[in-house]
Design a protein around this nucleic acid. Structure first.
Lengths: 211, 211
DNA sequence: GCGTCGATGTTGTCAGCGTCAACATAAACT
DNA sequence: AGTTTATGTTGACGCTGACAACATCGACGC
């Protein structure tokens, strides 16, 4: 049971990187039963460890959730970057290349594909963000990507004038609102998918000041 | 202690409309300490009643929250109607009369003024809406008001073409997204208030197909 | 009037939760 | 080898929502 073979790198004690194992187990648990289904006893049992072992690696339950949220923001950030890059690439070739729309699509696709991460990131389970500066920083960096994309599109004449921060906040609100309302089953009154709505919104916003 | 005087109308037993008292105490408790601070024991104590008395009037804690949410949706519905009516009135007199913007402003003002109600209505504390058809109905009626307002503005030529349901979903997403992001302290990167952003969005959306 | 009954409220109790303190173990360093 | 320190375990506490059994009181039939 005790892996005393010098296989793992320095810093592996009894279990060997229990912190990462707990993190992955937590993410899996949330994926299976939602944030409300996450239990310190449960995540401990999932790793084969006692219920309080976790306290040697995380200050408390909130800290564990904050780490999950941080991982979520990193993936989210990467997903947005990829969506933006994809739209930028297709620009030279195909006519589509609507960077804002593609970013919005990447947004809602991430949320749809990783609802548990999204829930931890933006749900109400994390009470005090002040406690987790790295989480704040990653969230802020993600938002900055949004702002810079808007500014870049403005510079290329593909988006109307206005404070890019404010425009980004509007775009973010649309995406986040659609994701959360959709998750709450509030957007099922029409055949239009959430992706359709994103494309529509993007057209309306970017076209607003075109003429 | 026992109010046996026939002062109250028929149907008041030991306490006399304990259900309403519990409802109000619950709303007050949530306002004071958030949804997470709501405790059956606490709300019972606030009314001067035992911790399980509530089970004679509500099936469980979720049912109590659902009733609070229903009350919230009724007030929300009324607030939106008032905002729309106000904009309609000022139309004939003043030049403003932007009904969509005024509706959005009423939306975010309600959320800002009644964060506890809004949280219960749209937060994650209500797991299964299926259990509460009256709540679903009131929420649906509120959304219908939104759709009809959009359609009405379209008919008057003050809003572009498109499926009014889809447009209403977009407007709703903007408002809801701004409210929740703002509540999560995510919209503090600019001086623009949430009301400024609503007016901006409204202009961009209604102007999108104007030309 | 009185007695039954059903509606309403209380107490006892349970399992599950997060968390802390005390203890156990094993790796690491001297 | 012996000490220290990092890591994991067990016991316990207070809190929560919920159920079962009991108590109380208004209403209604006789």
């Amino acid at each position: 049971m005790a892996r005393s073979t010098g296989k793992k790198p320095r810093g592996t004690y009894h279990h060997g990187d229990l912190e990462r194992a707990l993190l992955e187990a937590a993410a899996r648990t949330i994926q299976a039963g939602g944030v409300r289904g996450l239990t310190l006893r449960g995540v401990g049992a999932a790793v084969g460890v006692s219920r309080t072992a976790l306290y040697r690696h995380f200050e408390d339950k909130s800290a564990l959730l904050a780490r999950v949220a941080l991982e979520g923001f990193r993936r989210f950030h990467a997903a947005l970057e990829e969506g933006i890059a994809k739209a930028g690439r297709s620009k030279s070739g195909k006519a589509h290349g609507d960077v804002i729309a593609e970013m919005g699509l990447a947004y809602v696709r991430f949320a749809a594909g990783n609802p548990s991460y999204y829930d931890v990131m933006f749900g109400e389970c994390l009470d005090d963000w002040e406690r987790y500066p790295d989480l704040q920083e990653e969230a802020s960096a993600t938002f900055t990507l949004l702002v810079e994309t808007v500014a870049s599109e403005q510079a290329r004449g593909r988006f109307g004038p206005g404070n890019p921060v404010e425009l980004a906040e509007i775009i973010w609100s649309i995406s986040h609102g659609m994701v959360t309302l959709s998750a709450g089953k509030h957007l099922n009154q029409t055949d239009a998918t959430i992706e359709d709505l994103i494309v529509m919104s993007s057209r309306m916003l970017s076209g607003a000041f075109k003429v």
